[in-house]
Design a binder for these strands. Structure first.
Length: 363
DNA sequence: TAGCCGTGGGC
DNA sequence: TGCCCAAGGCT
């Protein structure tokens, strides 16, 4: 028996596992992919269900089964056909991987979906969750299938405070989920855990009065249901004061290309940079341009102010119209004077694009 | 490890 | 409106 990092005695494990199993057998929804044991059809359903709601998946699964009823049919289908069948589901690499997987099954596994963790995990698009789901549901193998529902349900029952956003946390939950499986009944137990998470133990306002394991739930006991699972909140984007220079030469403006790596790699921008600690915006801009091109500029007026939020940064960018007071710009591949009317030919980040648009409006 | 990949629904 | 969330996996 694998040892879990969560302190659970065998009696509790048997009680919780059995109750979830019994409850699922009582209340399970009649879903189309629950009417088959065909590993291929269950595989397709599990991939469709990744990050996607059951109600959304049902019509897609039905249509997919008509179009590609077997591994052979999917393996041989033209890519445009499979994409069309997936249209509107999102995450389109899922269906490309599914087809690649079908081809691998045909060529390496004699057309039969593998029934071991090691083998099935070699299929593209089959990660730890999907592997466990297919093995348990289609082949009755007693392996866990830990998805977002399972994180939520188990973290509440056992008051697990590990951050579920950390990859290593998965092992804790897999160990516990495996420990809870009533022997030989992983198919219904695993689906029961997920069904419980989807219908009762929901993220907000969980329906604890209807829960089959309410008497075992430590979070309910402490009135802390909504504090679980523990999920490190994404840090809010760091605010950054950006500066940029609008330098004109007749109807042309100066743009430069960003480095090939890092944020907004390879895109074009109006030269500038982050505000330097201790300096004003204008002083920072002068410093950046001096260092970058060896020219001295004089900010003359604020041309535009643009806000743009990235996942990790929040730019408050001010674009100053500047004059060159000393030195000369030497053009090269990544630094050019470009007519305003030609700027469309260059790719700008959204923030700079707004400035380009404003410039265009002036022409 | 963190960023990326799509879409629809709930609040 | 703007988040968060939903049966994840890949790079």
């Amino acid at each position: 028996m694998r040892r879990t990092q969560v302190d659970v005695n065998i009696q509790t494990a048997r009680a919780v596992g059995g109750k979830i199993y019994d409850w699922y057998e009582m209340v399970k929804r009649d879903l189309p992919w629950r009417r088959t044991r065909d590993p291929y059809k269950i595989w397709v359903s599990e991939v469709m269900l990744q990050q996607t709601r059951v109600e959304t998946v049902i019509p897609y699964w039905n249509r997919f089964m008509e179009l590609f009823p077997t591994i052979e049919a999917l393996a041989d289908a033209p890519e445009p056909d499979i994409l069309k069948a997936w249209e509107g589901l999102g995450y389109y690499s899922r269906v490309r991987n599914l087809q690649k997987g079908a081809q691998v099954v045909r060529e390496k596994f004699a057309g039969r979906v593998p029934d071991t963790l090691d083998e099935i995990s070699t299929l593209p698009g089959v990660g730890p969750y999907t592997a466990g789901a297919i093995l348990s549901i289609a082949y009755d193998v007693d392996v866990p299938a830990v998805d977002g529902n399972v994180f939520r349900v188990l973290s509440r029952i056992f008051l697990i405070e590990e951050d579920i956003m950390k990859p290593k946390t998965r092992r804790t939950f897999e160990g516990l989920a495996e420990f809870l499986i009533p022997t030989g009944r992983a198919a219904s137990f695993n689906q029961g855990l997920m069904e419980l998470g989807a219908t009762i133990c929901i993220p907000k306002n969980p329906r604890c009065q209807s829960c089959p394991v309410q008497e075992h739930c430590r979070a309910l006991d402490e009135g802390m249901q909504e504090a679980f699972p523990v999920k490190e909140k994404k840090k809010p984007p760091r605010p950054v004061d950006m500066t940029a220079a609008l330098l004109r030469d007749g109807d042309r403006v100066l743009i430069r290309r960003r480095p090939d790596k890092g944020l907004l790699a390879g895109m074009w921008e109006f030269p500038g940079g982050e505000r330097v600690e201790g300096l004003s915006l204008e002083e920072s801009l002068i410093t950046h341009l001096t260092e970058a091109f060896g020219v001295t500029v004089a900010p003359q007026r604020l041309f535009a102010q643009v806000q743009h939020t990235f996942s990790h940064l929040q730019w408050d960018m001010r674009v100053f119209e500047c004059a060159i007071v000393q030195g000369q710009v030497r053009e090269h591949d990544d630094l050019k004077w470009v007519a305003v009317g030609e700027l469309d030919a260059y790719t700008f980040p959204v923030a700079h694009g707004k400035v380009v648009k404003e410039l265009g409006g002036l022409v």
